[in-house]
C-alpha cells in the first residue's frame, strides 16, 4: 500500500477494494502503515473512499523544497512571491476550515470573494505596528508579503466562462492568485469551476490530518483566520 501510494499518491476503494477493506477493518494494518509512513516523514490521510499520502513538515526527500516550488511556479517567482503564494493557500485553507472543524462547511470559494478576503487580510496586517516582530514570532514572512502585495496593481478579474484568457505571472494580484490556484490544481488540491475554487478530497484529507498533528504549525492559520475577525470587531465598535 505504501509503495502504491508513493507511486500514485493515493489508494482508492474502488481500485483496490481488498486492500482498502483490510485497512479499514484491521487496526494492525492501519498502525503498521502509519508506522512505516511516519518513519519516512510521510502522513497517511484517510478520507471517505480514499487514502492519501502526503509528505510531512520539512520532508525534503518526498516533499518539495522552496526551490522546487519556485521553479514550478515559474519565471518571476522569487521568495516574496512564493511566500505570498503560501499566504494565499493559508487563506484558502482558513476559509474552508473554520475553527479547526473536522470537515468544511463551505462548498466553494468564489474567486472574486477570494481576492476580496486576501486584500482584507493584508490590510489588517498593515494595522500591526511591529509586523517584523509578528513575522519573527510566527516564523512567517508577513512583512515581505505585505510589501509585495502593496506594490502590485489590482487587475480586475475576467470571467473565465466566455474568455479563456487568464492573467498569469507575478505582475498583478490577480495573476498571483491565478498562479496559486493553477499550482494547487496541478497537485490535486483544488479544482476550478464556475469561477469558484473547489477543494478536492486530497485537500480535505490533508487539512483534517493537519489539525491532528502536533508538529504541524496550525497556529499560523489561526492567526491568518483571525486577521479579518479583528477588523470586523473594530468595525463593530465604530
Amino acid at each position: 500500500m505504501l509503495y502504491q501510494m508513493l507511486s500514485t499518491g493515493s489508494i482508492e476503494r474502488f481500485v483496490y477494494p481488498k486492500h482498502f477493506m483490510r485497512y479499514e477493518q484491521e487496526s494492525e494494518i492501519r498502525e503498521a502503515l502509519d508506522f512505516c509512513a511516519e518513519k519516512l516523514g510521510l502522513y497517511v490521510c484517510g478520507r471517505g473512499d480514499s487514502i492519501f499520502l502526503s509528505a510531512g513538515v520539512g520532508n525534503r526527500v518526498f516533499g518539495y523544497t522552496n526551490e522546487d516550488v519556485k521553479n514550478e511556479l515559474g519565471r518571476g517567482f522569487k521568495n516574496p512571491e512564493m511566500y505570498t503564494v503560501f499566504f494565499i493557500m493559508n487563506v484558502i485553507v482558513s476559509e474552508f476550515y473554520k475553527e479547526s472543524f473536522h470537515d468544511t462547511l463551505r462548498i466553494n470559494l468564489p474567486k472574486n470573494y477570494l481576492i476580496g478576503i486576501i486584500e482584507a487580510k493584508i490590510r489588517a496586517l498593515s494595522d500591526f505596528e511591529d509586523l517584523d516582530k509578528i513575522s519573527e514570532e510566527y516564523k512567517f514572512n508577513f512583512r515581505e508579503i505585505k510589501d509585495l502585495w502593496d506594490s502590485l496593481p489590482n487587475v480586475e478579474f475576467r470571467d473565465d466562462s466566455d474568455i479563456e484568457i487568464k492573467q498569469k505571472g507575478t505582475s498583478s494580484k490577480t495573476a498571483i492568485i491565478n498562479e496559486t490556484v493553477i499550482f494547487m490544481k496541478k497537485h490535486r488540491l483544488v479544482d476550478e469551476h464556475n469561477n469558484a475554487v473547489y477543494p478536492t478530497e486530497r485537500f480535505k484529507a490533508i487539512v483534517s490530518e493537519a489539525y491532528n498533528r502536533s508538529d504541524v504549525q496550525t497556529d499560523i492559520i489561526e492567526f491568518i483566520d483571525d486577521l479579518t475577525c479583528l477588523e470586523e470587531e473594530k468595525n463593530a465598535e465604530t
Binding site: G9, Y43, S54, A55, G56, V57, G58, N59, V61, F62, G63, Y64, D68, V69, E72, Y83, F86, M89, N90, V93, K139, F140, N141, F183, H187, L189, F203, I206, V207, A210, V216, Q217, T218, I220, I221
Partner: peptide, 12 residues
C-alpha cells in the same frame, strides 16, 4: 516528490 500542503505550515 510532490507538493504537500503541509509546506505552507512550515517555519520560514
Amino acid at each position: 516528490r510532490s507538493f504537500s500542503l503541509y509546506k505552507i505550515f512550515e517555519s520560514q
